[in-house]
């Protein structure tokens, strides 16, 4: 009996998320512009690739991922959706939605839209460079030939070398698509996670500016503290593992899990105390 009712609720939720996403991406023109923006690093990296002795598409791929991204990644994550959402709170728009819609459903739809936007943006931030490095570039052949030798490595070892460079590059031993999709999923998930933390903090911390800046400030502080403790592989910066040696695949999931638990705790707190949260009153 309950099922059709829940299904109806779910459909309604999806509709809200979809309309929200439409609002976020505005139009195809904006979406195309964003895609072009995401493709820009690939073009730039190709242009400067002459100055580097690259040993294969995987090496080229790490060159494309913008070097500035690890520094401002949480800032971009909250800027995509949580920042515009904060206007709804600051102008008390959300208070007037309460009589028109169930606040929990409203917040859930917003949280889901936030996750989708951040996931897609960061997934593409890695996947477009992957396609460029592994599909487009080899067929065009701008960088050919890649380095064929490396001091101290036999041809067989050189072939296996790309899969031993960074964390996640072990996926290359399964195949390039496993690596490309695996890392893009990883970046997308982290983007969604940081965006969610920012979003949830907006509901919990009364000062909206502080709430939105915590993911960025906390990310850098945690990176520094873990570096001081000489365990950088457990720092949040492992989202971009390219300047560290290879670690087992479970290692990056340690900080991810900690942050996911934090996000879940925040979500539970918001769910339990929806009626008492200052920002919604």
């Amino acid at each position: 009996m309950d099922r059709p009712h829940s299904l109806g609720k779910f459909t309604k939720l999806l509709k809200t998320v979809r309309s929200d996403l439409k609002k976020t991406f505005l139009s195809w023109k904006v979406t195309l512009l964003l895609l072009a923006l995401l493709a820009l690093p690939s073009v730039y990296a190709t242009a400067i690739s002459d100055g580097y002795a690259l040993f294969g598409p995987a090496d080229f791929f790490t060159l494309i991922i913008p070097f500035a991204l690890p520094l401002v990644f949480p800032l971009i994550a909250v800027a995509l959706y949580a920042l515009p959402f904060s206007n709804e709170l600051s102008h008390r728009y959300i208070v007037y939605t309460r009589t028109r819609s169930n606040i929990r459903r409203y917040l859930t739809s917003k949280a889901l839209a936030n996750i989708v936007v951040a996931f897609v943006a960061f997934f593409l931030a890695a996947f477009i460079p992957f396609l460029w490095a592994f599909v487009v570039e080899p067929s065009v052949g701008v960088i050919n030939p890649y380095r064929q030798t490396m001091v101290g490595l036999s041809p067989a070892e050189l072939e296996a070398y790309p899969a031993t460079v960074n964390t996640f590059s072990q996926l290359l031993s399964i195949g390039p698509w496993a690596y490309g999709l695996g890392y893009s999923l990883w970046l997308g998930m982290n983007g969604a996670l940081y965006a969610s933390i920012g979003f949830l903090l907006l509901l919990v911390v009364p000062n909206r500016f502080v709430a939105l800046s915590i993911p960025f400030i906390g990310y850098h502080i945690a990176n520094f503290v873990f570096a001081v403790l000489t365990i950088p592989q457990y720092s949040p910066a492992i989202v971009f593992p390219f300047n560290l040696t290879q670690f087992p695949l479970w290692v990056p999931f340690v900080p991810f899990t900690v942050l996911a638990v934090l996000a879940l705790s925040l979500a539970l707190y918001v769910r339990r105390r929806t009626r008492e949260l200052d920002v919604l009153l």
Binding site: F67, A68, L71, V72, L75, A79, L83, F209, L212, S213, F216
Partner: peptide, 15 residues
């Protein structure tokens, strides 16, 4: 928040 974005840009600009 605009100030925070400026700080983010300065962080990158320092490289």
């Amino acid at each position: 928040m605009a100030g925070l974005f400026a700080l983010g840009c300065l962080l990158v600009a320092g490289l």
